[in-house]
Design a protein around this nucleic acid. Structure first.
Lengths: 349, 349
DNA sequence: AGTTCCACTGGAATCGGTTCCACGAGGGAG
DNA sequence: CTCCCTCGTGGAACCGATTCCAGTGGAACT
């Protein structure tokens, strides 16, 4: 350890001015003579001065800090997009983000919230890695909070989630628009209707068919588990039907990936023989498939950005109902959707 | 805004004690009478008191904070494991982690380092998302720093990286041990020997062959680009050889994934007809493939943990050469490696 | 010449903690 | 009974910034 870091007093003494003047220079206040400013800045430069943020914080009460807390264990690759989105918005506003991975442990999570509050955060983003209902630490009520990709049953926090229904509808519409009428769907785990990602996407699928005047056929819908095996198995199942689908909508990209292997085994080419739309835009999968997979992107970055933006701009004093926001899942066109194959096209009027 | 948050002085007044006593209770010092402690704690509870971290920080000089700064744009799913590892170790030591995604912008990065220093971090972890040489902001010299998955040419910072050579050797050994002698390898982009992930893994491959007394055959080695297409194309290429390989070692899981499609097209089953080892353990790919892919895991979590541990425990005063640490890449056994197929086994003595 | 105004400046008070010194009470030893 | 030590305690000083009030000196105005 060489020497103690210089403080504003050291600068003042060295420059032969008062501490107030140094502070004014530091904060670029207008009422400082140019000569004085230059002198002070010279001394700062020479001594390698850096302001101490904590001192400013304690005096002004502004921490310029937001907390970002993740729910549960997060082995998904989504976390990072979320953080990036949140951080991008925070940086615009000259704020920093304290990220904490709560690791699925309730006590860790409570502890983390306490820590963040003690560090004076101006708000907290509480993010789940898949869309579901959550129970959050009580202390979150002490500070402005936005829930991301999740919600409480009581709706007592602002929240932002993907618009699953609309995503499911648009995915299906994309296939309808190419002329497909027999569209197979494999949903995520519907598990007691708890997961919006499963229920909502299926609802969107039905809505799109309705709007297009295509009758819903329960035989074309299977309940998968979200993994590659489900996609593989149910793709085979559906293709074994008497009147098999010409297109598939999978509730996850991983299921779509499993299905690709089923297609390969049957000698079916994507998108010539069969069209596919996935969901999630896990681009390390979607990009790597051959052909690359057209899929619905979860708006992780946008949700992260929205959350911080809301923390920055929403009026936190009043008692209005916390905003519940849905963000669209844009389609990412790659190469897995094509027109109905000629042999099937005859079915069209 | 209801009322001002209570400070230690409010607690002292309310409890009829001095501020020193409140501070002692807060810090669980032994020399406080039990009755006093109870009384003070009661008042704290009643007033919903929370200490202000910044005040403690400014007085004690301890920020209990580390910075975590990422290099470049990080669209990889690895970032999160790294952060989790670092954070787990930080939490053990009761520290927090400030994560900043520098987004590939030099000025943002410099700014971030300044911010972190002004916030009084006790050290900074500078993490790349793939193993390469980096140029870091000058200001990092002002504070203890560990480089993760990267290094400077001058070796003037402590650094921790994956042991690529050993990983390549062990991957190859796994195949040799099943009796394979013709082992194809597709490397990452070797680009002017800049990337240890490419050069090192190949070196390991050669070392393993050497040790097993298997002659190196340049024909079996191709230089890919790390993506699925490379794997697909070179798998076909290698299988077209007169004496094709019975096993493959791919420098990335994505290339292995591409190869799976080539195998499927040729009716080759993994691992019965052909064995595969990947690298990276991108488990969303490796798990989803059928059969799941045996691959070498990049020790992201361990590197993150090591980095923070080093910041905590290394002696930062002295001028010894900064530690350059290599961490092993453990093999993750899934289902893509099997013995040499019977039809080829005849070649063995 | 006297007054007013303005630009600029110094420094005390303050934020919410920690730390240290001084002090009073009580107990044990001599 | 005195001395000393320990335990528990109060409160001033301090950490490094910001903020505000009270000057100071000179220019402009009357």
């Amino acid at each position: 350890m060489a020497v103690k870091k210089p403080s504003i007093h050291d600068i003042a003494r060295e420059a032969g001015v008062g501490v107030g003047t140094v502070s004014r220079v530091l904060n670029e206040r207008p009422n400082v003579a140019e000569a004085t400013r230059a002198k002070v800045e010279g001394v700062m430069e020479r001594l390698g001065y850096r302001p101490t943020f904590a001192a400013r914080h304690i005096r002004t009460g502004r921490s310029q800090l937001f907390g970002f807390l993740t729910d549960q264990v997060t082995t998904t690759p989504f976390a990072h997009d979320l953080i990036k989105g949140a951080q991008a918005r925070a940086r615009q506003a000259d704020r920093m983000l304290m990220v904490i991975d709560a690791d699925g442990d309730d006590r860790v999570r409570e502890q983390a919230v306490s820590n963040l509050i003690e560090r004076g955060v101006e708000g907290i983003v509480y993010a789940a890695m898949f869309h579901h209902e959550v129970h959050v630490p009580q202390a979150l009520h002490e500070v402005p909070t936005v829930l991301v990709d999740c919600f409480t049953l009581e709706r007592d926090f602002a929240s932002v989630v993907p618009d699953e229904v609309r995503g499911g509808r648009e995915a299906t519409e994309r296939l309808l628009e190419e002329g497909h009428r027999r569209i197979g769907m494999v949903t995520n785990d519907l598990l007691a209707t708890k997961y919006p990602a499963a229920v909502g996407r299926l609802e969107g699928y039905r809505a799109a068919l309705d709007a297009a005047g295509v009758a819903y056929d329960a035989e074309l819908v299977r309940e998968g588990l979200g993994n590659a095996d489900s996609g593989y198995r149910f793709a085979h199942d559906l293709l074994d039907l008497d009147d098999p689908p010409t297109a598939f909508f999978f509730g996850t990209d991983r299921m779509a990936m499993g299905a690709y292997f089923a297609f390969a085994e049957r000698g079916l080419r994507v998108p010539d023989d069969v069209s596919v739309v996935g969901f999630d835009d896990q681009h390390y999968i979607a990009d790597a498939l051959r052909p690359a997979l057209t899929t619905m992107a979860l708006p992780h970055s946008a949700m992260g950005r929205w959350a911080v933006d809301h923390l920055l701009t929403a009026p936190w004093g009043d008692d209005r109902l916390p905003l519940q926001r849905r963000l669209p899942c844009p389609i990412v066109e790659r190469g897995s959707v094509g027109p109905v194959p000629a042999s099937d096209a005859g079915e069209e009027p």
